Computed example of a mutant assay.
Amino acid sequence: MTPPRRAAVLGSPIAHSLSPVLHRAAYRALGLDDWSYDRFDIDEAALPGFMGELDASWAGLSLTMPLKRAIIPLLDGVSDTAASVEAVNTVVIGADGRRLGDNTDIPGMVAALRERGVEKVPTAAVLGAGATASSALAALAQICAGPVTAYVRSEARAAEMRGWGERLGVDVRTAGWDEAARALDAPLVVATTPAGTTDALAAEVPERPGTLFDVLYDPWPTRLAAAWSDRGGKVVGGLDLLVHQAVLQVERMTGRVPAPLAAMRAAGEQALAAR
């Protein structure tokens, strides 16, 4: 009989996280009755102590803010994908105890777009310049043939985005946030900003919009996403991203492929509707 296995999501704050809902739905669908998935409110200061107490029952961890970089020095290895953006959102703990970091946000973004028929675009725009924006650039490196324009609030952020572009092989141009309405004419717009930031842009959606990828999932839809959809544009939402990156986490942690995407999405939709 195999011993029970554990996994969890770490971050601070963490109470809002849908990860337990998605992973537990996957375990039920896969018949992994002896697996558990929890959430722990852990900040950067508490992370080393938490990692030091993990025992052989642990199979993996999901990491959210502010831990995606803080975890790296505590690992035995990091995938090329995670290293490319210096961000780990997944730790897989092997039978030998080795702790390997990965990033499923990047392939999750690509998978979410492909699910909606977005395989290649000639150009793209990114709204924002945080950690999610760098992951967006890494995803765009795989599907965008031409330049990506990032709309940001400061020259320091603009310089960061250009630096990420050089590192990831993406031709990144930058513009001020006061010009963000211009972004909406791009064939693919990726909004990576906090809730409410893009609300004022809802009135600027063009008559024939392309695709909007808004990484938020609560509240949903955002004003921008609702206006985009009303104009007939294609919308990919934060739940799409969350589910696709969680699918990859489940596969890496459990070794079971494919993970049950439909069951995980249904569980996430039900949980959001109940909020």
Rank of each mutant, 00 (worst) to 15 (best):
residue 3 P to T: 13
residue 8 A to G: 07
residue 12 S to V: 09
residue 14 I to R: 09
residue 17 S to N: 10
residue 20 P to G: 03
residue 23 H to W: 04
residue 23 H to L: 02
residue 24 R to Y: 02
residue 28 R to F: 01
residue 29 A to V: 07
residue 33 D to H: 12
residue 35 W to P: 12
residue 36 S to R: 15
residue 36 S to C: 12
residue 39 R to N: 06
residue 45 A to Q: 15
residue 46 A to Q: 14
residue 48 P to N: 07
residue 50 F to P: 06
residue 51 M to F: 12
residue 53 E to C: 14
residue 53 E to I: 09
residue 54 L to N: 07
residue 57 S to A: 14
residue 60 G to R: 10
residue 62 S to A: 14
residue 62 S to L: 05
residue 62 S to E: 02
residue 64 T to L: 12
residue 66 P to E: 07
residue 66 P to H: 10
residue 66 P to V: 13
residue 71 I to N: 00
residue 73 P to G: 05
residue 78 V to W: 04
residue 79 S to G: 11
residue 90 T to V: 13
residue 94 G to T: 08
residue 99 R to K: 15
residue 101 G to E: 06
residue 104 T to V: 07
residue 104 T to C: 08
residue 104 T to M: 02
residue 106 I to N: 07
residue 106 I to C: 03
residue 108 G to S: 10
residue 108 G to W: 14
residue 109 M to V: 04
residue 111 A to Q: 12
residue 112 A to H: 09
residue 112 A to W: 13
residue 114 R to A: 15
residue 114 R to M: 07
residue 114 R to Y: 07
residue 115 E to H: 14
residue 115 E to N: 05
residue 120 K to T: 15
residue 121 V to H: 05
residue 123 T to L: 05
residue 125 A to Y: 13
residue 127 L to W: 06
residue 128 G to F: 03
residue 133 A to M: 02
residue 133 A to L: 02
residue 134 S to A: 15
residue 134 S to I: 11
residue 139 A to Y: 09
residue 139 A to V: 04
residue 140 L to D: 00
residue 146 G to T: 02
residue 159 A to N: 04
residue 159 A to L: 12
residue 164 W to S: 08
residue 166 E to V: 10
residue 169 G to Y: 07
residue 171 D to I: 11
residue 174 T to R: 00
residue 176 G to C: 06
residue 177 W to D: 01
residue 178 D to M: 01
residue 179 E to Y: 00
residue 180 A to E: 06
residue 181 A to L: 01
residue 182 R to W: 01
residue 183 A to G: 08
residue 183 A to I: 11
residue 189 V to W: 04
residue 194 P to Q: 02
residue 200 A to S: 15
residue 201 L to A: 06
residue 204 E to N: 06
residue 204 E to G: 00
residue 204 E to D: 14
residue 206 P to F: 05
residue 209 P to E: 00
residue 215 V to D: 02
residue 215 V to C: 13
residue 220 W to T: 10
residue 223 R to K: 15
residue 225 A to Q: 11
residue 226 A to Q: 14
residue 226 A to D: 14
residue 227 A to P: 12
residue 227 A to S: 14
residue 228 W to D: 04
residue 230 D to I: 03
residue 230 D to N: 12
residue 232 G to Y: 10
residue 234 K to D: 05
residue 237 G to E: 12
residue 239 L to G: 08
residue 240 D to V: 03
residue 241 L to I: 10
residue 243 V to G: 01
residue 244 H to T: 02
residue 244 H to E: 15
residue 246 A to F: 12
residue 248 L to P: 05
residue 249 Q to P: 09
residue 251 E to V: 06
residue 256 R to G: 00
residue 257 V to R: 15
residue 259 A to H: 10
residue 260 P to V: 01
residue 261 L to H: 15
residue 262 A to I: 04
residue 263 A to I: 05
residue 265 R to A: 10
residue 267 A to H: 06
residue 267 A to S: 04
residue 267 A to L: 11
residue 267 A to D: 01
residue 269 E to D: 01
residue 270 Q to I: 02
residue 271 A to I: 05
residue 271 A to E: 11
